[in-house]
Simulated scan of single mutants.
Amino acid sequence: MKVLNIVGARPNFVKIAPLHRAFSQYPDMISKIVHTGQHYDSVMSGIFFDQLDLPKPDFFLGVAAGTQTQQTAQIMVEFEKVLISERPDLVLVVGDVNSTLACTLVSVKMNVPLAHVEAGLRSGDRSMPEEINRILTDAVSDHLFVTEQAAVDNLLRENVADNEIHFTGNVMIDSLEYYKDAIDRSPILKNLGVNAASYVLMTMHRPANVDGKAGLQRILKIVKRLALLKTVVFPIHPRTWKNIEINGLKNEFENVQNLKILEPQGYLEFLNLTKNAALVVTDSGGIQEETTYLNVPCITLRENTERPVTFEVGTNFLLKNADAESVSLLATEIFAGNCKKGTIPAGWDGKAAERIVAILREKYINSYVCDK
């Protein structure tokens, strides 16, 4: 059985690593990696491949900058060539980035079976590109592997057949568990001169927060208020930093006292920072899950989240209409110890990839042998 695993952006690498490792345990399975190039430089891509022990991609499509439409179209054109030459038994996509949708559409049009890992997540906000990517990918996938019960409920409401839905857990947690010792060995805290629980870790990249001057000014005010409470460590996404410069806010960010601005970090460094933070403030989806598993308080600056389990049973606080005052007040409560005690969601045990591969083997290999 030949499987093509699609990666494009940094979160994809974290999810594909345990799946590729699980596929590769079986001599009757061929696992190949297709890198679309959506995140393509050494900072956003190369270091993740190195740290996650991923082999050099079997195919690199070389699609990078451009509008979402341009990027999606270019990936589709290039990926079609790969499908024609490889003739795989299955295409596996993860998450909700443009690469996910692009390769989904090509696979379906060429009648190649499709598996979607991290299916069924819904924010209810169709202004988010990721929401459209999720909905469309789930609508045409043959196998949907989900991370939480809410995702099962969403898919059933959308009339997905019950036998196509599989509650297998969270492959992001597989990576976190597998690399926990390497994460602990990272010298990032020493290099930055900070101690555990002495800082707030911040990430921001959603268009609503960073693509306009008003949003960036709001984030700047939040950073300034948090920096009065603790050191703020802020690894800044390249697009976020570009928008900060375009909107003339570079000097204001750089002049904030008690703020450490960093380039994007490697997987091991970033998870070490996450694990040891007093608080994480983010707009990322995956970080909500990682903080829940690590039992680190997290404030999510969004109007909605597609991962409700992180605030229903985890350590995440979804702060809508957030401003500097509301973030500062909540952070102060958290630092005082008045925060909820989260629990780890069901199936987040480091074995999700094994369960996914077992299901696919049953459908594509064991059933074939039985038929013969």
Rank of each mutant, 00 (worst) to 15 (best):
Q70Y: 10
N98K: 14
F311N: 14
K351N: 06
I365P: 01
N247F: 13
P18W: 04
L90Q: 01
P129G: 13
P264M: 13
Q25E: 14
L52D: 02
V108G: 05
I6R: 01
I246W: 09
I236V: 14
T203F: 07
G314V: 05
Q71P: 04
H205K: 04
L155H: 01
C298W: 03
K250C: 04
M172G: 06
S284A: 15
E86M: 09
Q70D: 15
L271K: 12
R126F: 15
F13L: 08
F311W: 03
R225K: 15
G120E: 01
V369H: 06
V63N: 02
L201M: 14
G285W: 05
P308S: 15
A353S: 02
V91L: 11
N316I: 08
K230T: 06
T137L: 03
N163C: 12
I287E: 12
M1T: 10
P27R: 07
S45Y: 00
D323T: 05
Q149N: 11
E131W: 07
D174A: 06
H237V: 09
K190Y: 10
L226V: 03
N338C: 04
V3N: 11
N338I: 00
I261V: 14
Y267W: 02
I47R: 14
R157D: 12
P297S: 02
T292F: 02
E263G: 10
T292I: 03
I165W: 00
V7R: 00
R225C: 10
K250A: 09
M128P: 06
G248A: 03
P308Q: 14
D184F: 11
D89T: 09
T36W: 10
N321E: 15
D181C: 07
K224G: 03
L330I: 12
K180W: 04
D41A: 01
H39I: 02
L54K: 08
